[in-house]
Amino acid sequence: MRIITELARWAIPFLLFFVPLYAYFRKVPVYESFVEGAEDGFKTAVKIIPFLIGMLVSIRIFVDSGALELAIDLLKPFFLRMGWNPEILGIIPLAIMRPLSGSGSLGVATQLIHQYGADSFIGRLASTLQGSTDTTFFVLAVYFGAVGIKKHRYALKVGLLADVTGLIASVWVVSKIFG
């Protein structure tokens, strides 16, 4: 684990050191090429603004109004009937939040970890779930929006299926290992 953590620390400095140096030896005009590429960053960031705002407004109203909590209350009996341990139900807010918003789900995960304790079952489950999938809605809206795709076809289905699998796998593996 130490090696992996060290690798992560060195990854960005290494890239910033190695790529320009290597390019220089390959006779690439380093500074000019960097600037030329960087120009695209500005354009793309501006292009995704409407999609960001559209998604954020809808999600924020859904969460802040209490509609999310209501949805969680409605879902609880369903999970209980499926034979889930009542203890696991604490994870539902995070499970719903995860595909919607990255910062939102990090907030929920942090709150759960503090509420139940980092080394509790829910704490470990929340940590695993938070680390294991990405914000499907957001990536979808922003990535497709940036290039002007209007018909998403089966993309959302695939993304949500992966999220559900991630949730079930998290519950299973955390119960199995830390049980």
Binding site: V19, V35, G37, I48
Partner: peptide, 23 residues
């Protein structure tokens, strides 16, 4: 978006370098 602007410019700039160098 503004945060992303800076980060995107940095990485796309570096990627353009890496591309020209054949990396």
């Amino acid at each position: 978006a503004i945060q992303l602007m800076g980060i995107m410019s940095l990485w796309l700039g570096l990627m353009n370098l890496a591309e020209k160098a054949g990396l």
